[in-house]
Design a protein around this nucleic acid. Structure first.
Length: 954
RNA sequence: GCCCGGAUGGUGGAAUUGGUAGACACGCAGGACUUAAAAUCCUGUUCCUGUUGAGGGAGUGCGGGUUCGAUUCCCGCUCCGGGUACCA
């Protein structure tokens, strides 16, 4: 019987669906294991061969765990809200729900084609009201809670109100936007609106005016990680800073816990580092600098309190609250001009010229609290409103930016650290001895920091303080295709959360998805929906992309529960995700927000664990080969002119642009010798008719309008192209669809080839060339079960020791390698075992059957087919993984390499357990060894039992 | 700039605790089968040197170090990939 992947794969996929083979129960005596893939956004482009890499790895692991006796949860679903569908709707009028569903269907077909073991009965979709009901519900919970820094947990807002009524803000340790001090009487006297505003300072989901990344083109606000280099990540449109009233989530309340519990996670160090950098904890001091002639003082945060004697000026952010009152009349004009300038500067401008200091003097002076000398107060855009206190004490002697500023504006610089003992130390290095610093003189920097902290606290001019770079997450989007906020405003403008019984609040139907006027969401146009009969109004913003994906892994545990986001029983059984597989691009976005939400739910006692994802594996990107031709920028006599890459390099004065070419047209693509022959050029001009009359010039001659004019005896075009490795994308014409590979080689082959390409975590270019090796292997493996006449031929004879050794070597290797996520070496091990068994002409059931189970996670279809051919009526995927027996691997003898000074010179066999001294003696007497030690002195002989022998001579 | 990764044959990669560098594949070369081709199978394939054979030398980005022994550990560089940035 021939191996025909197309037939058997279809057959068994149908069988698995009909038999609900991958359906998982929440009721099981088996230990649980939760394997999760990162939520895909179903884009219109469908899957390319890079996407399934992680899914294949996790599928292998899930199937392996199942065979090892675990009850494995391995679900899949869709992050279905998002900008692209909405942009598409604006362009075409197709409702985002419709295009999203089409895309999902396409994804599903592509995923099904690869033979994954997902339990599709648990599929979730974030845009489904039965799902986003619970996204809204969690938001509502966040709105109804504040964070108690004393107890280190979230508490209900009602308890905060009770506290305020009883004793005002006294004794309150809360995470908040601005520190407030208030008496109980003052609280009680406040209007409802005033109380609402005050509570917003505490709520975990709150509304306030923030400077946001406003993108005019998209008509919406973007999160920091949706902005790259000052333009929107999607579409590349300009982004500017704009103050707007926005919903935010107080993730900063959890900064310390998010940082601390990173240590408990099995994530790559790189990943943890990225998160801890993002949180950006720094220890230092909060110090108050009195202002000359004012009651107020300026609060700064510094990590270098030791340098305070060198603080010769202060700098405030242009947006700082005190700017108005500090500015003196004669500086007024200059300050106003600077503020005008600062406002015009977008984030992008600021980034562009980081090196150039700008600023203006306010005319006011502060008093350095330690030197007691007056120091000038400046404004400068290098000080950021949102970081620390929005004001700094500037120490030009020990800070590069302060130094640049002081040099430019002629401000005094006092050296406070003698670094003569550290000739290589830079300005900001924390080394050296204190000078010109009063009571600190003579101390080492680190001691001086501690001493200053003490002094600052003793004198009551400040205190120790920990600062975080992490900012609260802006949670409003002025879009249609997202979760509506479960918030209504009364006529006073006070925000109220909707009753749980009123959820889900569904999106209203709209005809037109363009943003409404005044930077408002398209929802504002659904007046019937916005305006409630009682005169109240709905919030018209919607939630951002990360809302639905911040908790989806919990919903899979109990995907259709209408009463709760997941039942207590399901949560207690599944606990958390044991293995999470996905790309690094979510390092600080999704992974940070999910951890934050999870900790909040944990505080509420709603989930049993403090962290959602125990182990994380990051799959590398599969890249594509990008082939381009060099085209002269200017047309020549009205024709486009393409030239060979070599010629283009020689014509230094001519400007060229790279025109990407479909890789299929290019000969030897992906190599330095890639080129377009005459046929390729013809294909190209057929494909891109706008270049029909173009000139194609190479060393061999010139091609135009279907004719090749050779130079000399050349017989065709040899137009060199430029090869690069990069993103697989439509615009480079290098996208490879997994469906095409599966059609040609079968899903089992595709799965194994993706794994064989290299370590999962490493980025690598896709190249179909090597796939034949895997395809041959699968045929060979199949062939083990059949005789020359292609009839099934498997016997019940007792296997030989050699056959057992092949099997058990393979079991050990596969088990070890799956456990350490080394799937490429697994494939190699299967190849070795198959080659060896073929040589032995092994057809014993006792060997071949365990081999099937071993291979089942990798090649689920082929193994299922052979398993049934062997007479089983149950699926191979519910059989049990073969047990390794080390006894079969015990050898009678060991081959030792014999080295002279670490270089291998001979091999010699010894019976197992030969004593070292005898090994040493025999080794020294070997013919091949003697000639190396003749005339030399043997200094030492090292014998590592069962490993090697090294003879040291001189 | 700072923080992480990485660099091994013509190519993808292997070497798990410091112990035989190049497993397993691709490609290439030669051979078998075939009228022929495809498919399949066999042999060879790090480089240099050696007419064959045997042998010898070099070799894991570069330069040094530790060690009997280094792809693996340490120090200093180069290049590539990713993250991040007036962060006080």
């Amino acid at each position: 019987m021939d191996y025909r992947p197309r037939d058997i794969e279809k057959k068994w996929r149908k069988y698995w669906v009909e038999n609900e083979t991958y359906r998982v129960s929440n009721d099981s005596d088996k230990p649980k294991f939760y394997v999760l893939d990162m939520f895909p956004y179903p884009s219109g482009a469908g899957l390319h061969v890079g996407h399934p890499l992680g899914y294949i790895a996790s599928d292998i692991f899930a199937r392996y765990k199942r065979l090892r006796g675990f009850n494995v949860l391995h679900p899949m679903g869709y992050d279905a809200f998002g900008l692209p569908a909405e942009q598409y709707a604006i362009q075409t009028g197709v409702h985002p729900a419709v295009s999203t569903d089409e895309n999902i269907q396409r994804y599903r077909e592509q995923l099904d084609n690869i033979g994954f073991s997902f339990d599709w009965s648990r599929e979730v979709k974030t845009s489904d009201p039965s799902y986003y009901k619970w996204t809204q519900w969690i938001f509502r919970e966040l709105f109804e809670h504040w964070y108690d820094k004393g107890q280190q947990k979230a508490r209900p807002i009602s308890e905060l109100i009770a506290h305020l009524e009883k004793q005002g803000t006294q004794g309150l340790q809360a995470a908040q936007s601005e520190e407030i001090s208030l008496s109980a009487e003052a609280w009680k006297k406040m209007s409802a609106k005033e109380q609402d505003t005050l509570l917003m300072d505490y709520r975990l989901a709150y509304r306030k005016t923030t400077y946001v990344n406003w993108c005019e083109e998209l008509g919406t606000v973007l999160a920091n990680d949706e902005v790259k280099d000052g333009v929107s990540e999607r579409g590349g449109f300009p982004v500017e800073r704009k103050p707007m009233l926005q919903w935010s989530l107080r993730i900063t309340a959890y900064a310390e816990r998010l940082l601390q519990s990173l240590q408990t996670l099995e994530w790559s160090e790189a990943m943890k580092k990225m998160q801890s950098n993002w949180i950006g904890r720094s220890e230092g001091a909060q110090v108050f600098f009195p202002i000359q002639g004012h009651d107020e003082s300026i609060e700064v945060f510094t990590t270098r309190p030791d340098t305070i004697f060198g603080a010769t000026f202060m700098v405030l952010a242009p947006e700082h609250d005190l700017v108005e009152s500090l500015t003196t009349p004669d500086q007024r004009a200059a300050v106003d001009a600077y503020l005008e300038y600062a406002k015009s500067r977008s984030e992008r401008d600021r980034m562009a010229d980081v090196k150039e200091a700008t600023g203006v003097f306010t005319g006011a002076y502060a008093i350095n609290p330690l030197t007691e000398s007056p120091i000038p107060i400046w404004l400068g855009e290098y000080v950021l409103k949102d970081y620390g206190t929005g004001a700094i004490m500037a120490v030009p002697s020990d800070d590069d930016r302060d130094h640049r500023f002081a040099t430019k504006f002629g401000i005094e610089i006092i050296e406070v650290i003698d670094k003569s003992d550290y000739p290589n130390a830079g300005r900001e290095d924390k080394v050296g001895k204190m000078i010109n610093s009063g009571f600190l003189n003579g101390m080492e920097v680190l001691d001086a920091i501690e001493k200053t902290l003490q002094a600052v606290e003793e004198r009551g001019i400040g205190s120790r303080r920990v600062n975080y770079r992490l900012r609260d997450a802006i949670y409003s989007r002025q879009r249609y295709w997202g979760e509506p906020f479960p918030i209504v405003y009364d006529p006073e403008g006070v925000a109220h959360s909707m009753e749980i019984s009123e959820l889900p609040l569904e999106l209203p139907e709209l005809e037109d998805f363009k943003p409404a006027s005044g930077g408002k969401s398209p929802l504002a146009r659904a007046e019937d929906w916005v305006n409630l009969p009682n005169g109240w109004e709905r919030e018209t913003d919607t939630m951002p992309g990360f809302a639905g994906s911040s908790w989806y892994f919990l919903r899979y545990m109990d995907a259709h529960n209408p009463e709760e986001f997941a039942s207590r029983k399901a949560l207690d059984y599944w606990q958390d995700v044991d293995l999470y597989v996905g790309g690094t691009e979510h390092a600080v976005g999704h992974l940070m927000y999910s951890r934050f939400w999870h900790k909040f739910l944990y505080d509420k006692g709603l989930v049993p664990t403090d962290e959602p994802f125990k182990k994380l594996i990051n799959q590398g990107m599969i890249q594509g080969v990008i082939e381009s031709m060099m085209m002269q920028k200017e047309k020549v006599n009205g024709y486009n002119r393409f030239v060979c890459a070599d010629l283009a390099a020689a014509e230094v004065d001519t400007e060229f642009v790279k025109i990407p070419v479909h890789v299929d047209f290019v000969q030897n693509y992906g190599t330095p010798g890639s080129y377009m022959d005459t046929d390729s050029v013809k294909h190209f001009t057929d494909w891109r008719p706008e270049f029909q009359n173009a000139i194609f010039e190479c060393g061999n001659g010139t091609y135009q309008n279907g004719k090749f004019q050779p130079k000399g005896s050349a017989d065709g075009s040899y137009l060199m192209t430029v090869s690069e490795v990069g993103k697989m994308s439509k615009r480079y014409f290098n996208v490879v669809n997994p469906d095409d590979v599966v059609e040609r080689y079968g899903a089992d082959c595709f799965r194994m080839y993706e794994m064989f390409l290299g370590p999962v975590e490493q980025a690598k270019p896709w190249d179909t060339k090597g796939i034949d090796g895997v395809s041959k292997f699968l045929r060979k493996f199949w062939g083990l079960f059949f005789d020359e006449a292609d009839a099934l031929f498997v016997t019940d004879e007792t296997p030989t020791k050699g056959e057992q050794r092949i099997l058990h070597t393979c079991i050990k290797k596969i088990t070890d390698d799956i456990e350490r996520f080394s799937f490429n070496t697994c494939v190699a091990a299967f190849m070795i075992a198959t080659n060896d068994l073929q040589k032995e002409k092994c057809n014993k059931r006792a060997i071949l059957e365990p081999m099937l189970t071993l291979l089942a996670p990798f090649a689920p279809h082929l193994t299922e087919d052979l398993w049934h051919q062997l007479g089983h009526s149950e699926t191979v995927h519910n059989s049990s993984f073969p047990v390794f027996d080390g006894n079969w691997l015990i050898e009678d003898s060991v081959s030792y390499p014999v080295s002279i000074n670490g270089k291998k010179r001979a091999m010699v066999d010894f019976p197992m357990g030969t004593p070292s001294d005898q090994i040493e003696k025999t080794a020294l007497e070997l013919e091949e060894i003697k000639k190396w030690i003749d005339g030399m002195t043997v200094r030492k002989v090292i014998v590592v039992p069962n490993r090697m022998i090294n003879i040291v001579v001189s």
